[in-house]
């Protein structure tokens, strides 16, 4: 896999089918529905619970805005990912071009996905810091790989954003 900036796009080339599939899973992975821990992480309280009025108002007025913001980002990413749904041979390496103006949406969606997966599997600090863990032997291992892969992509995009 190779990532580089070309004019007003970020180009991810030499994407093998496995990594392409992981990318396709970003929008679904970013959805916290059905996991209380993930919901709580994405929509954390703005203050200590003793600030009851503030917390109530936050839920009422701010949380819906945040939901819209997060959803817009994942929708943008889902649209970009349609490039990977072509009719090319399944096992061929692919190229994904991300418009420069979508960089923030990608950073947000990747972050949402990482936080949701980490909350779902309750990864420890040690697990999250172990970037050399291998091989992938379970769904949990695969999810940890997903978190690290998305983190790597975030780093690459951040480097391009400067």
């Amino acid at each position: 896999m190779e990532i580089r900036r070309c004019n007003d796009e970020i180009e991810i080339s030499e994407l093998d089918p496995f990594l392409a599939e992981l990318l396709r899973q970003i929008p679904a992975s970013a959805d916290p529905k059905g996991t209380t821990a993930a919901e709580q992480r994405l929509f954390s309280p703005p203050a200590h619970e003793t600030e009851t009025d503030l917390c109530k108002e936050w839920k009422l007025y701010v949380e819906p805005e945040l939901r819209r913001l997060f959803q817009t980002a994942t929708e943008t990413v889902a649209t970009d990912l349609q490039q990977l749904n072509g009719s090319e041979k399944t096992l061929a390496n692919r190229v994904l071009r991300i418009p420069w103006k979508h960089a923030d949406a990608w950073l947000s969606a990747l972050n949402q996905a990482r936080l949701v997966i980490a909350a779902k599997y309750n990864f420890s600090d040690a697990e999250l810091g172990d970037h050399f863990r291998s091989p992938i032997g379970s769904r949990r291992d695969l999810s940890l790989f997903q978190v690290n892969f998305y983190g790597f992509l975030q780093e690459c995009i951040l480097r391009e954003v400067g």
Binding site: L42, F43, S44, P45, P46, A47, H48, E51, L54, V62, E65, L66, L69, S108, N111, Q112, L115
Partner: peptide, 18 residues
């Protein structure tokens, strides 16, 4: 302060005001 915390939550950081 509320506005800053809202922005930080928009970036998915754990932020509070007190």
């Amino acid at each position: 302060a509320e506005l800053y915390v809202q922005q930080l939550h928009g970036y998915l950081l754990l932020a509070t005001l007190e």
